[in-house]
Amino acid sequence: MSRKGVKIARELRILRRMTAANIAMNLVYRANFAMFMVSNIAIPVISLLVWRAALASGARLPVGKEYLTTYFVILSFVTMATSSWMAPFLSEDIRLGKLSIWMIRPASMLHESIANNLAEKALKAAMLIPMVGVMWLLFADAVRVPGNGVRWLLFAVSTVLGAVLVFVLDVIIGALAFWLDDTSGINRARTLILGLLSGAIVPLALMPHWSQGFMRMQPFRFTVSFPVEILAGHLPAHDIAVGFGVQLGYVLAVCLLARRIWSAGLRSYSAVGA
């Protein structure tokens, strides 16, 4: 095996060990975990009920009941699969000097965050998928997904890219703590902006007509809405191809930006505390 291959194999072994340990840690606090799951699925369910009620009472929307129902059923899975919660934790680790314990060991400092993300998602998927299944059954009359396997494959790839995009954005936001003492305001803004512009709260198709051009190209669409649209929105092939190009472009851009910010940040790291 080449030197690069050996290095990658080693990194993967470290990641596997960390993910296993993170799964073990999450299983210690079962009640806490169950509550997280309930709160995860609550927003899509409530949103779906609100929009269906609006349609039932005669609201004129640019999309129909089938689109909305399919959108929110798929959304309940995609929001979990692409979510990241590391920015406030990373900021705290930098601010309080906890990053030091990873910096003195021969492995990437982000391994722990990636492992934590993967571990929690693996556990969440085990609990969430049956819940999404129940939701699907309850609204089966209005759920319309393509039977085409290629669409499902594209959906899976796009969801993974969305997860990478959210995670790397979080690295950038968390890394601001290298220069700012308090990033809680930025974290709050990130949660609000991501919720609104990703389509996690309101489908982007329901946003004002004049904003649709911006909505289609802005980066947050590619964290949640785009994968959901692949299944629920019956996007034409051309729109999917363009969407993938833009999504990939955003992923590469944030990765490059994160790398620069991270390495500049390490130079400013003050390793607070003993």
Partner: peptide, 13 residues
Amino acid sequence: LVMGQKSMLWWDV
């Protein structure tokens, strides 16, 4: 490096 007030060990396992 061992820091008296920072743990390298995971606490929950």
